[in-house]
Computed example of a mutant assay.
Amino acid sequence: MNQASGMQAADHYFVPEPSKYPIIGAVALLLFGSGAALWLNGMPAGRWVFFLGIAILVFMMFGWFGQVVRESEGGKYGRRVDKSFRWSMGWFIFSEVMFFAAFFGALFYARVLSVPWLSSGDNASMLWQGYAGAWPTAGPYASDPFTPMEAWGIPAINTLILLTSGVTLTWAHYGLLNGRRGRLKLGLAVTILLGIIFLSLQAYEYAHAYAELNLRLDSGIYGSTFYLLTGFHGMHVTVGTIMLTVMLFRAFAGHFRPDHHFGFEAAAWYWHFVDVVWLMLFVVVYWL
């Protein structure tokens, strides 16, 4: 009888009560986007609207995710809910793949198609005399020379750091599966530390690029694609580091079991996705 009741509890599908957090999140994103647009257009109120949107978004995430954690630890989720979470995280990561694919596609179009076209045929002889079209380039109208970022410096070090972080996170995961919670906590802590080191080195790289290489966001097509791709990746590393930090706090609070830890798995999926994107980015943006 107890076994049958347990199976029934595991198979039930939990239906949450109506939540206020989706509308709060929508308001936060509206303020975030409109504030950024106002700020970029030089309106003084833009930055305050932008930071208000961030504050409301953080409030929403703490409240909504905290509610999910409490429901999970309260035993309200069964196998069906777990499956729906896995599908949802899978589709979310797929949307992130498409997000980066758009920027990689823009880089491919500029580098392989448009830049050579501008320096060929009638364009070279009539419109852009003297423009060689060699990559990296700021484009035919470039006025300030810049030095492209070398691959075998900070970018190579950051590649090693992210690869190592993937190993430490997997080590932590195996510790959880084997009931070794000390390994789980240590692996998570080391992974978070590596993420912070990565972000610190990237911030130093940006300062070096602006101050010494004259490589700026407005340095033509090379500058814009470089900062958009590396900047958005850095933002994703920041999000991943925050997610892993939450997982570490939950591990210290006694959460997660070998057979029930999708919150940890979701954060790990996201971190490994960030690792793969960086490998592609290192090869395409820095190396080639």
Score class of each variant (00 low, 15 high):
56 I>Y: 10
28 A>I: 10
69 V>C: 01
148 P>N: 15
108 F>G: 02
240 G>E: 11
266 A>K: 06
258 P>E: 03
266 A>Q: 11
14 F>L: 12
191 T>I: 10
268 A>Y: 10
252 F>I: 13
287 W>I: 02
86 R>F: 09
225 T>F: 02
90 G>V: 01
278 W>I: 03
193 L>Y: 07
158 N>Q: 11
127 L>G: 10
96 E>V: 07
258 P>R: 13
12 H>Q: 09
90 G>N: 02
261 H>G: 04
223 G>T: 08
240 G>S: 12
217 L>N: 02
179 G>S: 15
34 S>E: 12
264 F>P: 05
38 L>Q: 11
130 G>L: 14
262 F>M: 15
246 V>P: 02
171 W>L: 13
42 G>R: 09
97 V>C: 10
81 V>E: 12
212 E>I: 01
134 A>W: 15
104 F>V: 02
123 N>P: 06
60 M>F: 11
190 V>F: 13
272 H>A: 02
215 L>D: 04
15 V>D: 04
12 H>W: 05
178 N>F: 06
157 I>S: 03
60 M>W: 10
233 H>S: 09
221 I>M: 09
24 I>M: 14
105 G>E: 00
224 S>G: 03
242 I>F: 15
25 G>L: 10
104 F>E: 00
57 L>M: 11
157 I>P: 03
40 L>R: 09
